[in-house]
Structure formats: structure tokens, C-alpha cells
Design a protein around this nucleic acid. Sequence first.
DNA 1: TCTTGTTAGATTGTCGACAATCTGCTTGTC
DNA 2: GACAAGCAGATTGTCGACAATCTAACAAGA
Lengths: 229, 229
Amino acid sequence: MAKLDFSPIADTTRRAEIVALLRRAILTGQLEPGQKLNELRISEQMRVSRAPLREAMRELVQEGILTSIAYAGTFVIDVTAKDIIDAYSLNKVLDEFAIELAWPQRDARFFDELDRRHEAVKQATRAKNTTRQIETALQLHGLIYEWADNSVLLETWQRLTSRLQMYFALHQRARNEPVPAEDVHETYVALLKDSDMRAAQCHAREHIDLDFEELLAYARGLEKRASKN
Amino acid sequence: MAKLDFSPIADTTRRAEIVALLRRAILTGQLEPGQKLNELRISEQMRVSRAPLREAMRELVQEGILTSIAYAGTFVIDVTAKDIIDAYSLNKVLDEFAIELAWPQRDARFFDELDRRHEAVKQATRAKNTTRQIETALQLHGLIYEWADNSVLLETWQRLTSRLQMYFALHQRARNEPVPAEDVHETYVALLKDSDMRAAQCHAREHIDLDFEELLAYARGLEKRASKN
DNA sequence: TCTTGTTAGATTGTCGACAATCTGCTTGTC
DNA sequence: GACAAGCAGATTGTCGACAATCTAACAAGA
């Protein structure tokens, strides 16, 4: 028997496609925080009935990027400065743990994939495609989680990533400036290739690139605007 | 204005009740791992239509205790030794982080609640109600997460707890022995009341009570049985 | 005997319609 | 004018029926 491993077939249900569409719309900021999702309107736009749409929305509620109130509606989650801080502080802890687990698992395939994803970020940066830049940067970071060989940890990180992607997208949208041209992931990639695990963990803990400081400033801005209302 | 804080009203939709029912059935082991959930049968038993049932199942899939394959069905997740180990190792990391965050927040209300929940565990133990014992023990542990004031962390822990509760329930069912009579949480509670945070974290990291060792032995048993098939 | 095509039954996915609930406006009363 | 009651209109929650898909049993052919 030939040793050829096929990837699983796409589960082509309307529901799955709706989930993907909605998630993308939320994570890129096309659907803004707090915005209400009108079931009838969306189902008509997508040319599907409300049943699969509602099931899709239920999934995204559990995924943490939608929130639902009975008989009132389903809304994109609100983003507060505290949410961003909370997500980031947890992310740091998880990163440290993931590095610890992934460290002995690093192999040739790991380094290849590391370079590949790093390259993807650089390409998106050159193309000034901010959405793609955020996406690829998070995929780069996700590598240590994929190599950590802990399914619960990976799942947890993927949930967290949804939010982080949303936060960054909002941040980018808000300041609508050209994206930083230089590459901020060099150190991270280099440390993961090196032999000093502690150093890699410290880098993750203290200076997760993806300029967190700016994101926080944006978050604080949100707070102020909210307190005025 | 009187300073009286009301608890939120129950969101009485069939969906929410179905979620609660199913979750309970899964977490107590009434629905066994790998078992398929027949929509028509369940909807008839519960006297509801398939729509809210399906939405409920979609939520539980995202919650991680059900898994779904398109056009094939929805199943209770399988439990492997690795799953248990993964969940536990992550739990340790999160516990340490939660203690760190909750530590400065401890106040009179915290200690009261700590004693209250500890008492609930002891009561369930005396009553030899194993299901309730597991439930209360996890609630006791959840206190530090509730006091950590980090919504993402709390959410993450609640997801993890679902699984842990299921694992313990299965474990208890498998060995169907009377439950340990003596109280294993004394040290944990005492350390949380003390002033040495590091000690509390070490206790959490090294010896989370809820006899992990036994659970692991059970998990390994599962592995062996699985490999025979 | 093994493989491949066919078919019937069961189960999941989707649809359109109806019921329950909320919201905002109007109306009437003081 | 202020306030409560009641009435549309819109929106969410639920239902029963139909369509798409899978599974397993069976038949046909090599």
C-alpha cells in the first residue's frame, strides 16, 4: 500500500461556510464591535435560510467573538481595554508554556515551517496588506503551539487568537496608517532556532513583538471614549 | 436608591435548557464517550423540535465536549490518556497564573467564600454523593479564577473544567468504589489563607489534590483497552 | 470469492411558516 | 405636560416537512 496521507475532505455544509464568512467579517473588523447581527437580513444576503445561519452564530458565540441575549439579538463582542490586557497577559503565560513543551520537539520540519511562515509575514508586509499581515504573524506565533503536542493548549490558543486578531484589526483600522515596514519578528525567530530556551521564553514574556504597546494605547483610547457615554 | 444587586433573570429558551440537560448528562457520564447522539430520538424524548436541539449541540461542540462530523452525526468526545494528561498539565499552569492574579485581591469575602465552598465539598463527601463531590471540588478550585479578575482566563478555565469534571466522573464510574472519606483540600485552603504565595503555587503545581495519580492510572487503562481494538 | 454497482432505510442538513417576545409609538387619562 | 396602557411592527425562537447524504444490505459480474 502506498504511504500517501490524504488531507480530510472539506465538510461542505452551508453552516460551515457561514461560520467562515462571519468569522472573517468579524476578525477583519468589517463587522464592528457591538454591532447587531440581523438574522433575516444576513440570511437573505447569503441566500440561505435562518436555520444554518443561527447554528453558525451559536458556534461563534461559544467561540467568544459573538454574544447573544435571548429575544434581543446576537452582537459582535464589545472590546474594552481590560479585555485586551487580559487576553495579552494570558497569552504571555501560554506562550511560555508552549515554548517549554515545543522546545524538545523542534526538528528540521519545525525550522522549515518557521522560515516559511516568517517569509509569509514579510511578504504581506511588503505588499502592505495589513489584514494578511496580522493573519500571518499570528500563524507564525501559532507554530510553537502546534509543535507543543497538547491539544487542549492548542485549542485554547486558537480561541485566544481569534480575539487577538480582532483587536489588531480594529487597531489598524482605527489609526489607518501605513503598516510598519521593518520586520519585528527577527529576534523571535532567531531565538527559537537558538539553544537557549529561557531566552526565548523571556522574549515572549517581555516583548511579544506585534507592538503590544501601541495596541494598549488604542485600548485606553477606547476606554476614554466609552466613559464619555 | 437602595443598593440591591439583582441576579440576572434566567434566559428561558428551550435551547438553554437543552444545553444544560445535555451538558449534565455528558459531565456525569450518563452519556458515554464516543456515543452518538441521535437527534430525532433525543428531540422526541425532550419533547422539542430538532431546531433548538441542534443549536444546543452546536454550542456543546464549540465547548469541546461534543464532536460533530457532517452528515454522520454528533458524538460525545473520546477520552484518551493523552487528553487527560494534556488537560492536567495546562490546568497546573493556569492555576499558578490564577493564584498570582488573585493573590492581591483576596479579601474577607474571598475567605468566606473559600470556607463556604470547602464546606460544600465536605458535605458532599459525607453524603457520599460522588457527582456532587466532583462538582463542589471544582467549584472550590474555581474561586481563584473568579477572583483573578481576568475574564479570558476565567472563560478558559471553565472550558477546561468541563473536561476535568467529565474525566473524574468517568474515573469514579469505572472503579465504582466508595469515595475517599477524608478531606484532601485542607492544605490547599490553608495555603490560600496564608501569606506565602509561592507555597500556594507550588502546592498547585505539584500536588493538585483531587488525586491526579489515580486518574492517570485510569487513563492509562483506557489506552490499553483502546490499543486492543 | 472478491469486487463493484444499486437500492432502501435511516439520519443529518435546510427550508419556509408560525409562535413568542421585545421595542417604540400612540392614545388616553390625570 | 407626565405617565401608564395598549397596540402595531419588527425580530428572535420554535416547529414540521422536505432535500441531501450516508450506511448497510443485496445483487451482478469478473
